[in-house]
Measured scan of single mutants.
Amino acid sequence: EPLWIRPDAPSRCTWQLGRPASESPHHHTAPAKSPKILPDILKKIGDTPMVRINKIGKKFGLKCELLAKCEFFNAGGSVKDRISLRMIEDAERDGTLKPGDTIIEPTSGNTGIGLALAAAVRGYRCIIVMPEKMSSEKVDVLRALGAEIVRTPTNARFDSPESHVGVAWRLKNEIPNSHILDQYRNASNPLAHYDTTADEILQQCDGKLDMLVASVGTGGTITGIARKLKEKCPGCRIIGVDPEGSILAEPEELNQTEQTTYEVEGIGYDFIPTVLDRTVVDKWFKSNDEEAFTFARMLIAQEGLLCGGSAGSTVAVAVKAAQELQEGQRCVVILPDSVRNYMTKFLSDRWMLQKGFLKEEDLTEKKPWWWHLRVQELGLSAPLTVLPTITCGHTIEILREKGFDQAPVVDEAGVILGMVTLGNMLSSLLAGKVQPSDQVGKVIYKQFKQIRLTDTLGRLSHILEMDHFALVVHEQIQYHSTGKSSQRQMVFGVVTAIDLLNFVAAQERDQK
């Protein structure tokens, strides 16, 4: 057995438009009618409502009807409940999964919650491996369901041993009777949507819809739904939504950006999952974080739909894509998950301010006199920076000697690579993860907040409520011999709460 199987392995699926269902090699399930009293909570997966979006479509000038398939009504709160249950049931049916076995899954959280929910009911041990950027709410729900959680670096490539995929496979090879159901490759993922989600949409719309818009992560949702719609409703256009920084969209030119990270969760990847059939997507749109969270908040405030950030991405694209539809036509959007997962993220004004998705003037509360002053007023001194090749031991000596707790790590040209902190280095040394002679590049981390000289002290204040420091950066445009230009970030300084307090105190003292 291989040590790991690539999540982007070539698909062996034989589905073709027009091929009889009787030739399918898979076990198919028909939607079942729910009894009045459910035998367990797993029976509350599927049969989610279709809700008309009344205000947002009109606000953006849509002539067509805009409908939302509300997947956050599933038992675990997301569309991923469907595939989690289906993968477990299919693994039980073919004898792969037996009582007492362990389920391991690399996930952005929602599939993990679905699997942990099913594992709690069915009696399996469950280990979820997820990147650090995923919300604390997801972690809390997983723990409450009895799952064990392993976190991995957000910026690790999918084929790196440190990625959530790599760590999951390492655990599988170490733990007896453990299984990775593997949402990236498992046919049960798109089949769950082909058999149930798509049929529900067709039934709820009486077979009449002209466009379907869905955000894409593993691709199982859009693949399964689109294949069924292509068979039953061939005139329906399928629109895929991919965040900026991901590479799922086609044509490839759409993916060209210097951005590699994004805040919206559960969609987009740096590889093409095996289950994603991009041939059934008629057109791709890219979405960005700001519009995703703005539209998610709009869905909550104006439509009462308590959905997550990827739902915002989907609707932001839908109001663009559906401009081509006329009166009497219908566009369906998939709202994948609930706001429950993001209470401390985009639902929080403070978080939105820190990330730059909300401006101070958007909030009406009274601010102190210094709130709208610029960061450049602080008069920061030149920063202490270190090269990635310097040793951890030497870096600790320098920081202690100069009285700093942290320093930016830059390359020879001064471009920011990340940050090192005294606390992080000492804990890594004590844990045996690094040696004093190791290069400081081994303990770089990139989960820090950046701020510009033109940003306000109010925004800085919000950042420092949650973080010990902020890195002050400025952009530099560099022209190359080819005539092309590129933008790079340079370090201007490091600012802490002490710097802000000293500035405010000094100004008030001078005024007296």
Rank of each mutant, 00 (worst) to 15 (best):
G240C: 15
V241T: 09
P243F: 05
G245S: 07
I247V: 12
E250L: 11
P251A: 05
E253H: 02
E253M: 02
E258W: 10
E258L: 10
Q259N: 07
Y262M: 02
E263S: 04
E265C: 02
E265A: 04
E265R: 02
Y269C: 02
D270H: 07
D270L: 02
I272Y: 09
D277C: 05
R278S: 08
R278H: 02
R278Y: 06
T279E: 15
V281W: 02
V281C: 15
D282L: 07
K283T: 02
W284E: 02
W284S: 02
K286P: 04
N288M: 02
E290W: 15
T294V: 11
T294K: 02
F295L: 10
A296V: 05
I300E: 06
I300F: 07
A301H: 08
E303A: 11
E303L: 07
L306I: 02
A311C: 08
G312L: 02
G312Y: 02
S313C: 09
T314I: 09
V315Y: 02
A316T: 08
K320F: 09
A322V: 04
L325S: 02
L325T: 07
Q329M: 14
Q329S: 05
Q329N: 07
R330M: 15
V332W: 02
L335S: 05
P336D: 15
P336C: 08
P336F: 02
R340I: 02
N341C: 02
Y342L: 08
Y342P: 02
K345I: 02
K345P: 06
F346C: 05
S348Y: 04
R350D: 07
M352P: 02
L353R: 08
L353T: 12
L353D: 02
Q354P: 05
K355D: 02
K359E: 12
E360F: 10
E361V: 11
E361R: 13
E361I: 09
T364Y: 13
T364L: 09
E365R: 13
K366I: 15
P368S: 11
H372K: 02
L373Q: 02
E377Y: 02
L378R: 02
L378A: 15
P383Y: 09
T385W: 02
L387G: 15
T389K: 14
T391L: 09
T391K: 04
T391Q: 02
G393V: 15
G393T: 15
H394C: 05
T395I: 11
I396R: 02
I396L: 12
L399Y: 14
R400P: 13
K402T: 15
D405Y: 08
Q406V: 02
Q406C: 10
Q406W: 02
A407D: 02
V409A: 15
V410G: 13
V410H: 11
V410S: 10
V415S: 11
V415E: 13
I416M: 14
I416E: 02
L417T: 15
G418K: 08
G418D: 07
M419E: 05
V420I: 11
S427L: 11
S427A: 09
S428R: 05
A431L: 15
G432Y: 05
G432A: 14
P436A: 10
S437H: 15
D438M: 13
D438L: 12
Q439H: 14
G441T: 02
K442V: 12
V443E: 15
V443A: 14
I444T: 09
I444R: 11
K446Y: 14
K446V: 12
Q447D: 13
F448S: 11
F448Y: 12
Q450A: 06
I451F: 12
I451N: 13
R452Y: 11
R452K: 02
R452S: 08
L453C: 10
D455H: 10
T456N: 12
T456Y: 11
L460P: 07
S461K: 02
S461T: 07
S461G: 14
S461A: 04
L464S: 08
L464G: 09
E465I: 02
D467G: 11
H468G: 02
H468A: 06
F469T: 02
F469C: 12
V472E: 12
V473W: 07
H474L: 08
I477L: 14
Q478F: 14
H480V: 09
S481R: 14
S481N: 11
G483E: 13
Q487H: 14
R488P: 15
Q489T: 15
F492Y: 14
F492N: 15
G493L: 13
G493A: 15
G493R: 08
V494D: 02
T496V: 06
T496Q: 14
A497T: 14
A497Y: 09
I498M: 14
I498G: 12
D499W: 02
L500P: 13
F503K: 02
A505C: 02
A505R: 05
Q507W: 11
Q511T: 14
